[in-house]
Design a protein around this nucleic acid. Structure first.
Lengths: 221, 221
DNA sequence: ATATATAATTAGGCTTACCTAAAATAATTT
DNA sequence: AAATTATTTTAGGTAAGCCTAATTATATAT
């Protein structure tokens, strides 16, 4: 059995792994979980005994294959619940995270299987993040930040690199949605702001901070 | 905030209140929650301080209005989730209890409101139990055990008095479902077994133990 | 009413997951 | 390299919920 705390530790370690390097520091974990560094040291020793992570004093922590499986399964559940909340319960993409954080810990393989079927086996969650399959496998995602694109390109907005409510709400307010087509008209060299046309119709100015966090794919397929 | 343990204690007290008398004994609670009597005594003192129950040494415990509200809300959530599991996720009525026991503790009024809407404001759960409204009000249920009916009556099966998986599975196996019409052909005086006709077509013999736990209403409306 | 059985409470402990403060280790500066 | 700063670990504690064993109340039977 995996306790709630364990699940949250493993998930947090996974997320830090994802962007950061190969080992996860005590303080990074403490930050992410909002607990003291001392608590992290304690806890990490316990889950290391359970072979969920490898741990070396003062050298950080790393998920084992077993730990990774558990973490990815939590992420799978989280994202499926988010899809459900948005598509079936009418929630907005900036309203689902906290609820999904609770739902993700409900234990029942059969439930998740049926939920997946009910949702018609979605590939991504409402923020465009890939939903891993029941075996922990992620379909490759080929998107890149809009910032890395150049003038004249026509791309499709398929995900966000930043999940904060303020960013999501900014996008909603400015009528930017997953699936939108973005044509890059000009890029201002000085501040990296983009002049774009959304869905062949609406002209918008996007700051660097924004284009950095919009994930897009080349428009064709 | 209400902890998981608190929610389970309040729910258990409520359920014992429901069938039993006006106060709930330490041992009844201990039984129902699968903890020791000593733990119950301890815990009950704590929730009494929070005004969720009234407690007098060795005289049992009683829900306050505040405690009742919380308990009923948990029951509301439990039953809504059960409806969801059966109607949307294809679970059977004997498979939903354990999952709903987890889901019922998820905290979000907005979630429950939307779930209720998504399910089209169901009046009862898959076992025919009334779902209380958001204010804790239960619509009156006028059903009675089939055992209390007499020969010649035509009634509708609308609920069960016993929720064990073995009873639910017995009914499924014998093709008895909520909504079925039951016509009482004969009653054997010796053992109170009923000969009945289900939906004007199938003749069945039901033992006293069964008819005691089938809840029915007079067939008309 | 007294003895016996049943139920409830108290006392003392345990585990999980957290904490603060102090000590030790590692990383940075000068 | 020494000194300073930052990070990590250790030591000692706490609160929530549970436990067993011992004690006290209550209910039942004689």
């Amino acid at each position: 059995m995996t306790s709630l705390a364990e699940e949250n530790y493993l998930k947090a370690i996974y997320k830090i792994h994802e962007k950061g390097g190969v080992t996860v520091s005590t303080s990074a974990l403490a930050d992410s979980l909002n607990v003291s560094a001392a608590s992290v040291t304690d806890f990490v020793k316990k889950i290391a005994l359970k072979k969920l992570v490898t741990y070396q004093k003062s050298k950080g922590v790393k998920l084992t294959e077993q730990g990774r499986k558990i973490a990815v399964n939590i992420i799978r559940k989280h994202r499926l619940w988010e899809v459900w909340l948005v598509t079936k319960l009418n929630f907005k993409w900036d309203e689902v995270h906290e609820i999904a954080e609770q739902l993700e810990h409900v234990v029942s393989d059969e439930l998740i299987e049926q939920l997946d079927r009910h949702l018609n086996y979605p590939a991504t969650d409402p923020h465009g993040d890939v939903i891993p399959d029941a075996k922990g496998f992620f379909a490759k995602k080929i998107s890149k930040p809009l910032l890395d694109c150049s003038v004249g390109m026509r791309v499709k907005f398929i995900g966000v690199a930043e999940h904060s409510n303020s960013f999501l709400q900014y996008l909603t307010k400015n009528n930017l949605q997953l699936g939108d087509t973005i044509l890059i008209e000009t890029i201002e060299e000085f501040d990296s702001s983009f002049k774009v046309i959304i869905n062949e119709s609406e002209r918008k100015l996007l700051t660097k901070e924004v284009v950095k966090n919009l994930l897009v794919v080349d428009e064709k397929s």
